[in-house]
């Protein structure tokens, strides 16, 4: 599943998007964490912004503008919250990029963690990508009911299972003390079957 080069490791559905991003934004993870509502403000803003890409009326089988806005708000909020919660080490920059394409949208968020945080995250990613999302989702909820596990990937599982979003992950060692983690989310603009 993992592809790796000397500088990066890639998991899941990863695409080297060559087009110029439609939008970009840089933030600071410490600021997202200090004022938690900045996560929802940022996600709701970009969700509404991106949803205008959808025509006012769409053919059957395509997501309506309002639906896209809801999906993106949930998606981006989960991703911004993760950046706020899990960023660590000397580098706290968060980079947001979005590509609004004809039949899909691609969103990319980069944050930074300490190199020792790579292994547990990769273990979780491999579990999410290799397992059956439906089965894993309910297993994790039952396990969480016994004991709160926190950070168990429930957000990703909801997005994969209920919205058909595909994820890719890239780890790049930026320095001895910092690893850049980029999450790529592929949103299909057709209704998930």
């Amino acid at each position: 599943m993992a592809q790796s080069t000397s500088t990066s490791q890639i998991f899941g559905h990863w695409e080297a998007v060559t087009a110029v991003p439609t939008t970009t934004m840089s933030l600071d993870a410490a600021q997202l964490s200090a004022h938690w509502r900045r996560n929802s403000l940022s996600s709701d803003y970009w969700a509404a912004y991106a949803a205008l890409h959808i025509p006012e009326t769409v053919p059957a089988g395509w997501l309506r503008r309002d639906d896209v806005s809801y999906v993106l708000s949930y998606l981006l909020n989960e991703l911004f919250e993760n950046c706020a919660k899990f960023s660590a080490g000397p580098e706290l920059a968060v980079h947001f990029q979005a590509w609004l394409l004809d039949e899909r949208m691609v969103f990319q968020l980069t944050n930074h963690i300490k190199p020792q945080g790579e292994r547990p995250f990769i273990t979780l990613i491999e579990e999410l990508l290799n397992g059956d999302p439906d089965e894993l989702y309910f297993q994790k909820l039952e396990a969480n009911a016994e004991q709160d596990l926190g950070g168990s990937g429930l957000g990703y599982l909801t997005l994969i299972k209920d919205y058909g979003i595909q994820f890719g992950f890239r780890f790049q060692r930026a320095s001895g003390e910092s690893t850049a983690v980029t999450v790529q989310a592929h949103v299909n603009l057709r209704e998930p079957s």
């Binding site: 929802s40 809801y70 708000s73 949930y74 909020n77 989960e78 919250e81 909820l141 039952e142 969480n144 009911a145 429930l154 957000g155 909801t158």
Partner: peptide, 17 residues
Amino acid sequence: KFLNSSGINIVSRFVIA
């Protein structure tokens, strides 16, 4: 309008309980 995954977890835990 919105509930994040932490909130979904809380509601789900309640249903299981």
